[in-house]
Nucleic acid binder design. Structure first.
Length: 240
DNA sequence: GCGACAG
DNA sequence: ATCTTGTCGC
């Protein structure tokens, strides 16, 4: 597992961070359909924090898109690089996520983020930002509607409804399990919205949250526990 | 001006 | 995100 420090030149203030978003936003590619769902590889990335120790752990888990089987995985730990500010999540998560992706031995294929892409106050969320920095196709799948509104999708698994910023469709509410709260999908980089939704549905045959995110979530928590030496996931002799 | 607000 | 026990259910 690799260890990361805050990159040189990383924004230190909210104002600087917003300026970076405004600067990079124009590099997002929105006119590619993206890889077909159910083929190739799909990689989930997620992050866990221990603010008290100023430690963050990220995980990247590569799945075979057809079988949802884990192909390979990697983790990274680092310093917390930014406070949590709605709209600036990328600055908190990306350095460690990039390190975890770099540590992979295979091409990640499509990257699925735990958060938003286009559905963002400045249309440049975590998934958009990661896509621009890596060139990889990315999408965002969030658990909450953030500041956006949505029409309730039909109750059946597979139903979708627009996620709206006023009248602009910035993403979709996707019902991944019948009768259960939808997941909120938006485009990141080099993938269109219909494909992004199809990927999320294909990744969620049994649970609300995409398998990619579930695997990455479990792995980054384990990595954090190991890095900070917490109880809960025994990995050897208990340390006191 | 005062909240709300991905993780 | 994180703080947190037991408990209902397949």
């Amino acid at each position: 597992m690799t260890t990361v420090r805050i990159p040189a030149g990383w924004p230190a203030t909210e104002e600087e961070a917003r300026a970076v978003q405004d600067d990079l936003r124009g590099r997002v590619v929105l006119d590619e359909p993206g890889p077909p769902p159910g083929t190739g590889r799909v990689t989930g990335v997620d992050v866990a924090y221990d603010d008290e120790h100023d430690v963050v752990a990220a995980a990247a888990v590569v799945l075979d898109a057809a079988t949802l089987t884990v192909v390979t995985e990697a983790t990274a730990v680092g310093e917390v690089s930014f406070p949590y500010v709605p709209g600036l999540l990328a600055f908190r998560e990306l350095p460690t996520v990039l390190a975890a992706l770099d540590a992979l031995s295979l091409d990640p294929g499509l990257v699925v983020c735990d958060g938003y892409g286009l559905a963002h106050p400045r249309r440049f969320g975590l998934a958009s930002h990661l896509g621009v920095l890596t060139g990889l196709p990315t999408i965002g799948a969030a658990k909450n509607p953030f500041t956006f509104t949505y029409d309730e999708p039909g109750a059946a698994r597979g139903s979708t409804a627009p996620l709206l910023a006023g009248t602009e469709e910035v993403g979709r509410a996707v019902r991944t399990q019948t009768g259960i709260k939808p997941v909120f999908v938006s485009v990141g980089h080099r993938v269109d919205l219909a494909n992004a939704c199809a990927h999320v549905l294909a990744l969620s045959p049994k649970y609300r949250i995409p398998e990619s995110t579930r695997r990455a979530d479990a792995l980054c928590r384990r990595a954090l526990a190991e890095a900070v030496g917490r109880a809960g996931v025994a990995t050897g002799p208990a340390a006191d």
